[in-house]
Amino acid sequence: MSSEEITHILDTSESMKEVSTRDVKKVPVLRGATVVNLFFEPSTRTRSSFEIAEKRLSADVLNFSLSQSSIVKGETLLDTSRNLVAMGASVIVIRHSMSGAPWVLARELNSSIINAGDGSHEHPSQALLDLFTVREIKGDIRGLKVLIVGDILHSRVAGSNIWGFLKLGAEVRVAGPPTMIPSYVEDFGVKVFYNLDEALDGVDVVMMLRIQRERQEGGMFPSLREYSKFYGLTQERLKLTDGDVLVMHPGPINRGVELSSEVADANQSVILDQVANGIAVRMAMLYVVSTGSLS
């Protein structure tokens, strides 16, 4: 997406946010349209957020959740999706554990496809709601220093946010243990830090990523305790930044691991704003996709 396209979605999100403040939180934009949430990974918050967004746009919603094992053993992704199209789905929102899965659908189907997170590739709706949240509070993205901390290597949230914030003119830093920083990430135009304290200097936004326990089993770091000591965000560390820094997290959070409870609940934390804005941003995505105001 170009910066104009991103800005268009963010602007549309503002109108959508207004809908959520009404007594009757519903507009007839997608009345009569069927939207399918095709989820191959367990995801409560993203799926729920899309579902609420779809319902506020008056779409008929079908949640189609499959475990990854069932698809590997039986029906292919393409066949599953063709069934949904045959049932009349005009938009398919797909979450998949493998990078590029939405591309399989986009290549072969005529329906609109929204990527709700694919493997360790991208999570566009998360990045857009993060951009929206930052823009809403800070006014402008341009010139901000944004730090993303944690498992950059496996994080689709990082993948999309790096693109998004760079496109809108922010400086992007990443920090984490070297085993979780992709070797080539500097080629994207981000600054890499292995020391969190140094990385925090002068930042306007700190985005903490969820640490998945299976990464420890994979030997990416020795223990959650050590991870937390070097890369966890605490009140002490927060003091290294200006007072008006924004603390973000895509959720679900691990209190006491990537961020302390005090930080999660501090004034600077906009974690719940992110969740609320997620609905408006996803409404905007559905709107622009189904009305064709963006290709």
Binding site: S99, G100, D118, G119, S120, H121, E122, R156, G159, P182, S183, Y184, V185, D187, F188
Partner: peptide, 12 residues
């Protein structure tokens, strides 16, 4: 191939 493109595509 491990490199910029695999990182961009989120492929191992």
């Amino acid at each position: 191939n491990e490199g910029y493109i695999s990182t961009m595509l989120g492929l191992k």
